[in-house]
Amino acid sequence: MDSIISVQKIYKTFGKTQALSEVSFEAERGKVLGLLGPNGAGKTTLIRILTTLLSPDKGKAIVAGYDVAKEAQKLRSVIGLAGQYAAVDETLTGRENLEMFARLYHLGRKESRNRASAILKEMSLEEAGNRPVKTYSGGMRRRLDVGASLIFEPQVLFLDEPTTGLDPRARNDLWRFIHSLVEKGTSVVLTTQYLEEADALADRIVLLDKGKVITQGTSRELKRELGGNMVEIEPKDWQESKKIADLLKNKFNQDVRIKDSHQLITFPAPNGPADLRDALNILEESDIELLHISLTQPTLDEVFLSFTEKETKND
């Protein structure tokens, strides 16, 4: 693998909080790495370490060939960062903010102006560009913030919860935009709490919880790790759910779950279509009527919950 980021056994504590503990992973050049985890997992801390804002207590991280601790200043000229909280000046206009950041990347005056205009256009902020940022909506601010991190066409772009607070359309626009950057060769690291987002954007996912890497891989691999196919059954009469579950348990000897909230019964189906056919047959023999039955893959949500639950149980 051609690594753009290599993180080796990073530790970070804040007082008594162990924010990161033996975190290691690699990110491939020109791909999107998703850092996924619940509140307090350590995603922001990790991003801050990789962008030279924090130094790790222990361990080593190489980004774009530079050691984050020893070659911080060189690294800063090849990365872009949009942090979790908007980092723009409220009293300046969107355009002034962008020009300021461009100038701080040491672009010339004219080039800075051109880049600012291009970014405003890219982020659909042309109309608002000459208004002070304090008049912007949350989503506009967010877009400006992400735009500011792109002002220099960085080699590696770090986005900490980039779509938080965006409406679905703005989120889609941003996703498309990230895809287009990746096509042009930018490597991206993003954190998200939307599993859908990690699924849609990330080539590789690192699942963090309580400062530790719980698992990592492509979203397909993570889903497979959970056990692959499931059969999902929705009976016509929910009163019969218990009876159905018992029948299935006898037949398949699997972990059959009754999900009252969704009125669904699910169980793992390692044999895929064969299991589905068998399930249909037994239920038919017992005269149970169904509204719906299907073979599904677990959603990333289920992967996420199952891994983070496992962690909690082990504690």
Binding site: R76, A87, D89, F101, L104
Partner: peptide, 17 residues
């Protein structure tokens, strides 16, 4: 206490600017 300093720190600029 706002985020702007974080961004400035992540830029390749003079530490005292």
């Amino acid at each position: 206490s706002s985020g702007i300093v974080d961004r400035l720190r992540s830029l390749p600029i003079s530490r005292v600017a």
